[in-house]
Amino acid sequence: MAEKILHAIYDDDDKLLAAVKKIKEAKIDIEEVYTPFPVHGLDKVLGLKETRLAITAFIYGCIGFSFAIWMMNHIMILDWPQNIGGKPSFSFIENMPSFVPIMFELTVFFAAHLMVITFYLRSKLWPFKEAENPIPSTTDDKFLIEIKFDGSEKEIKKLIKETDVLEIKLHSNKKNDND
């Protein structure tokens, strides 16, 4: 585990982007970036992989669609077929037009909710979860780059000072119970 943590704080998204580019070019690993709003292009500059949440939503939607078909087939055709207003209930395909609205609704229901649950779990968001942004103003108007490293901070500090930085804070990475 790295010994030291450096926090470089910026007051503008463009300054932040320029700094991230510079730090990346110097081949220094950025541990994390905290921003008050989505900074466009930040994920590309940081080299983050594309999120696969949209793919999960598609899969969840397929599950919802299949579930709807299974459920209505089981209830209306297999378990208790009834003559309701003369609508054919002998086979799924004959009765299917009446099932379209609910097939659609359940597709959306599953895709939306399961995707959001996946997002919350992956990003560790739930009630009673403690926030982890190092300084509170990163949800207001400050942008923070966190770098973890071993050894001397001189070089990194020098590099950061070349960017349009507002403040640099250095912490030693003490082992504590949270780690």
């Binding site: 989505p38 949440l53 949209a54 939503a57 995707m115 009673f128 926030a131 949800t139």
Partner: peptide, 24 residues
């Protein structure tokens, strides 16, 4: 929910918003 505003969180947040908009 302990929102911290990490770069990855924002990337996911934007994707989720877009897909939810597409579903909604």
């Amino acid at each position: 929910f302990g929102w911290s505003g990490r770069a990855k969180d924002w990337q996911r947040f934007e994707e989720v918003s877009l897909v939810l908009a597409g579903l909604a």
